[in-house]
Design a protein around this nucleic acid. Structure first.
Length: 416
RNA sequence: GUGAGUGUAGCUCAACUGGUUAGAGCAUCGGACUGUGGAUCCGAAGGUUGGGGGUUCGAGACCCCUCACUCACCCCA
């Protein structure tokens, strides 16, 4: 036997049964996004490496160790996108979309790539829905975005979720907080785990993410970022929460919610599923008011979120049901030809038909139809060809009647 | 990147403390039954036991390496 070539580690095939679920979710996602005025935007799967280094942040884990970066034949350093936000920002600037009258509301569904160790809910090629709004300062927009995510999950009948919100301040107030946090962490240094001792210097905010019991207890005593927000950020956060209340959305203020991406400002939020394991965040997002300007664009604020589709799919309940279709069983060459032209006609009328082009016994063909879950079988033999009337059998009831072409169409139309 | 667990037919699983030719159910294909499905019976096909090396008279089982998957850390969607 020849050596087999398996799928690359951390990637997987989405087979027809599973792909059907993806289609259902994608249809719903697009429907909801369009309801809220978002338009689809599609950008390339790879970009200049620099885009992510600047956008996602040079100190983020994503950039440091998780990017699929390669050099092309002309010596350019390119990267398969690990997230979508920098691409959208790039595209808006490059195409001057901010000069158009249309609202800057965009969504996108597509594959992302991260060189992570694969695990449940974590793949090297995975898919995200990405939603972004630009040039909207009002915290009501932040709340509307969360409401939309909530709406989407409801429509998909996803149960057991929790919404966490926080504010990480802006570049005016965060440095004060970080400084205070660092000095307090410094004092407790000895009691922290080795990992957290490192974080004291690199990124003290991340100490809140630690799962070690001792660290958690110590972190409890640390100041909360929400107590250190500047006037503007505090007001923004308060009004954001008020609007969530207004929408009747249940949420938990989680001052320890620290998004790992460097660019977030003010509002951050996450929706987790209690039904998942360690990788439980299905939606994560927040504001990034400074990115556009830093990319050389206009000073336009932004907020958005990403949703992991593999994770979402694993908590969406699906009831399996096959679309009704007609199986054509034929006997002999003449009948085959009659079947082919009938099927051609019916398909043009929007009827799903299956003719398998295997010259098998009627019994075998009936067996196939049954196994595949056909709603009807159309039986064509010499007799039927001559009369131009065919045997239509309802597979659920077992009833069978002789029908003309038009009558067949009528029966199927009536059923669907 | 770190740690732990698991790899036997397409799928779900057997195979005693190491002992003949690695089995069963489901699925597939064929037949009983050449114009009528679901049931039953019979049969066929399907495996380098993830891969490589080692120990042994003998390895699916034990040891080492490697690959993949799973779970957790880390990080994130």
């Amino acid at each position: 036997m020849k050596k087999q070539i398996p799928a690359v580690k951390g990637t997987k095939d989405i087979l027809p049964g599973e792909a059907k679920k993806w289609q259902c979710v994608e249809v719903m996602v697009k429907y909801i996004c369009e309801l809220y005025g978002y338009k689809e935007i599609r950008t390339p799967v790879f970009e200049a490496t620099e885009l992510f280094e600047k956008g996602t942040g040079e100190t983020s884990d994503i950039v440091i160790k998780e990017m699929y970066t390669f050099v092309d034949k002309a010596g350019r350093s390119l990267t398969l996108r690990p997230e979508y936000t920098p691409s959208v920002v790039r595209s808006i600037i490059e195409n001057r979309l901010y000069l158009k009258p249309e609202p800057l509301r965009f969504y996108y569904i597509g594959p992302m790539f991260r060189y992570d160790k694969p695990q449940k809910g974590r793949y090297r090629q995975f898919h995200q829905l990405d939603v972004e709004v630009f040039n909207e300062e009002d915290p009501a927009v932040d709340a509307e975005l969360v409401e939309m995510a909530d709406h989407l999950l409801q429509e998909l009948h996803v149960a057991g979720t929790e919404t966490l919100v926080n504010s990480v301040g802006c570049k005016k107030c965060r440095p004060f907080y970080t400084k205070e946090l660092r000095s307090q962490a410094e004092r407790a240094r000895e009691a922290l785990c080795p990992d957290c001792r490192r974080k004291v210097i690199t990124n003290p905010l991340r100490i809140f993410d630690c799962k070690v019991e001792a660290c958690r207890e110590i972190a409890q005593t640390f100041p909360k970022i929400t107590d250190y927000l500047c006037q503007e950020c505090r007001e923004h956060f308060n009004r954001f929460c008020e609007h969530l209340d207004f929408f009747g959305i249940k949420y938990r203020i989680e001052p320890r919610l620290v998004r790992g991406l460097d660019y977030y400002t003010k509002t951050t939020f996450e929706i987790i599923s209690t039904k998942l394991g360690a990788q439980d965040a299905i939606i994560g997002g927040g504001r990034y008011d400074d990115m556009m300007k830093e990319f050389g664009g206009p000073d336009i604020c932004a907020i958005g979120f990403a949703m992991g589709l593999e994770r979402l799919l694993s908590v969406v309940p699906f009831k399996k049901k096959r679309e009704p279709f007609l199986y054509v069983a034929y006997l002999g060459e003449e009948a085959k030809r009659a079947g082919m032209s009938l099927v051609r006609l019916l398909r043009r009328e929007g009827v799903e038909c299956l003719l398998e082009y295997r010259d098998k016994s009627l019994k075998t063909q009936m067996g196939r139809a049954n196994k595949l879950g056909a709603s009807w079988v159309l039986i064509i033999g010499e007799e039927e060809v001559r009369k131009e009337r065919y045997q239509l059998k309802n597979m659920a009831t077992g009833q069978q009647e002789e029908k003309s072409r038009e009558e067949i169409l009528g029966v199927i139309r009536k059923a669907s």
